[in-house]
Design a protein around this nucleic acid. Sequence first.
DNA 1: CTCTGTGCAAAGGATTTGCACTACG
DNA 2: CGTAGTGCAAATCCTTTGCACAGAG
Lengths: 145, 145
Amino acid sequence: MSDRLARLSGRLREQGYRVTGARRAILQELVSSSGHVSADELAALVNRRAPRVGRMTVYRTLELLQQLGLVRPIYLGSGAAHYVLLEDGHHHHLVCARCDAVVEFDDCLMQELEQRLGERYNFRVQGHLLEVVGLCESCREQEPA
Amino acid sequence: MSDRLARLSGRLREQGYRVTGARRAILQELVSSSGHVSADELAALVNRRAPRVGRMTVYRTLELLQQLGLVRPIYLGSGAAHYVLLEDGHHHHLVCARCDAVVEFDDCLMQELEQRLGERYNFRVQGHLLEVVGLCESCREQEPA
DNA sequence: CTCTGTGCAAAGGATTTGCACTACG
DNA sequence: CGTAGTGCAAATCCTTTGCACAGAG
């Protein structure tokens, strides 16, 4: 359950960052919403439980998590960035190119690819985000063309 | 060379969209910059050759291309979305989580995965975007921790 | 106790919208 | 010609920054 929470805050601590109340609250919501949240949406969620945590802290914490490779921003519809947790270093979903519906999937054929890439480009791979893009069923029905 | 250009504008036409001068100019720059451009950067590039094309048209064209599955927005560092062409339906790169350096790579083990996914989730797959995230060589040197 | 992290407010950008005008097909 | 596409300017929304204060280690 808060396995994941513990793992995430562990990562912060071991990299020399403080595990503050605000950060814990943010991680908490990020894990329990385990979906695609914008910074503002996340701030609103956090505020319900920890009203003293401001929007700015959410932005800054997301940036930190991103630098640590724990989170990735994606673009979903409107101008705001949405964030996904890289659970165990990876995340996968299908996105409808038209209505931005999202379907999560778990298949992962990529451990091997990651390793090869890391070696070839001298890159320490932390994880990956794979978006498969296309049209969902209902968008396809609307326009059979 | 403008193979790709022809292919892209073909896609527009066959979906019932007009291939206007502005759109041609935008596709042109998108292909020749074949990298990661923000909407504003792209508008600037387009303006050098076609000064009468406004920034708004670039935004709207990018949205259209996105809906057709020809382009994908990604977040790279600062607030603005960057766009990548889904050449032949796919794009791959490594992104440094710290400095946002980008390394392109071509490996693609995913045709099979795509097909399976399309069937399972009843999704018409148009392409995919795979980001492998980690630390680049120089960021790793800065902090050997 | 010290220094990292936080909150606020305001600035700075990016994106979206409404409407009159142009030009592709 | 008719309609999809365009350009402009303004409005809106998202993100970043600077600085004084609070709290984790």
